[in-house]
Design a binder for these strands. Structure first.
Lengths: 224, 224
DNA sequence: CGGCAAAAACCAACGTGCTTGTTTGTTTAT
DNA sequence: ATAAACAAACAAGCACGTTGGTTTTTGCCG
């Protein structure tokens, strides 16, 4: 099972970031590119897509703007790189998180939901969320973001399911469970700043975990 | 019951938009202001917060930019007006929608969820969502948006509950039900463009309706 | 092996277009 | 006449992409 998931990850790995390059220049290039992507992730997370400027990213990455535009010719090129990078990182973290769980904890205590929730608190998800939202109103961004997002989502449904053997016999249930987790947890994340008192978040998460467990055991079914 | 809800709405009504002004100029001013707000809503919905420009709003509203800045001195003033306006409109539509339901349909068939879902498909919600997201990374916007959003959310929990007498004896359950609806439906909305096939949305909505009904009847409880 | 040209990484300055808020002017209502 | 509604032009700032130039690495050829 682990090898299959490792192959899925390898297949999705972004291009141009294989740190194992031969020449010195190649390794340096990868290193700088990653610095740029990490800076862009921070910039997206703290300033949002609209106020993310090439100047700021370059400053955060510690290089000149000209140097950055050497690696990513245009801003959209850079954003495309960020999209690939964040999606890969998120999937990687999620898969590793689930794989590291003992089966009893994963199955009986629905810890997958908690793993997923924690993945929403990362810098990578903040950047991903900014891109997802912005792509709703920016046709140019949508053109590069949506295909990637759909590809990852498809991989999640057809491949990552192997990380959850308890769902193997019920692919429709797994799809619903995934959609359910994503929608409710992302929605919770968006409203967390508005809801008072803050305890409402954990209460909602407990309820979703409860219903999720019932979905898995068959006490609730998709078609009902 | 209807009078109480009407009073809640009246209490939340935005300032400076009472079309019943005395003088001709006052009525004209209100009319122009509403045209500006409606144009801003469209602009936010189609171009997003980052690309919403005063120029574009003025063009869409059919007046000059100078005229617009006479009614809303600064861009943030305008955005504040849009925030008030959209929140009011959304609550108004939701309350009227629920009130128009026969009790059997509201209680037995969980039609409140469908009403809420439809409210997410409106222009007003698109604009509201843009502001909510942007306020996460724009401190100036957060300062004017978050207090308003919290006020409306509080009103929803303490007042709008009267539109759902079946929840009267269970305020914690109502709060959870509302949070649950909002989080799952808003999350569904965000991911709808990514999920393929599109049938996944309705399936998820059916599942949420099912669990919501169980929450109301007590088959599932918040504290479990 | 040494040197040299090409390429890659990097930096700084320029020009264009856009956005915001101000200022000045014109018409219409009170 | 005074004030409000509306319009147009201006000034300052910002962001993007381009262009020209500098340093370091790489590969080739004598």
């Amino acid at each position: 099972m682990d090898e299959i998931l490792a192959r899925v990850l390898a297949q999705l790995e972004p291009d141009g970031l294989d740190g194992e390059g031969q020449s010195w220049q190649q390794r340096k290039s990868v290193q700088t590119r990653i610095a740029i992507l990490e800076a862009a992730i921070d910039c997206l997370g703290t300033h949002g897509y609209g106020r993310t400027t090439t100047q700021l990213i370059a400053e955060m990455a510690g290089i000149s703007r000209g140097a950055m535009l050497h690696h990513y010719a245009t801003k959209l090129d850079l954003i495309a790189g960020v999209a690939d990078y964040t999606m890969y990182k998120r999937m990687e973290v999620f898969i590793h998180g689930v794989q590291s769980l003992p089966e009893a904890e994963r199955v009986d205590r629905v810890s997958g939901l908690e793993i997923y929730w924690r993945s929403l608190l990362t810098r990578e998800f903040r950047a991903y969320l900014e891109l997802m939202i912005a792509s709703r109103t920016d046709p140019e961004l949508a053109q590069i973001f949506l295909p990637k997002a759909r590809r990852y989502n498809h991989a999640e449904l057809t491949e990552v399911v192997r990380a959850f053997p308890e769902w193997a016999a019920n692919p429709d249930g797994y799809a619903l469970a995934m959609d359910y987790c994503q929608a409710s947890m992302q929605g919770l994340m968006l409203n967390a700043d508005i809801w008072r008192p803050q305890a409402r978040g954990p209460i909602l998460r407990a309820f979703v975990a409860q219903t999720l467990a019932m979905l898995r055991t068959g006490a609730l079914s998709p078609g009902a």
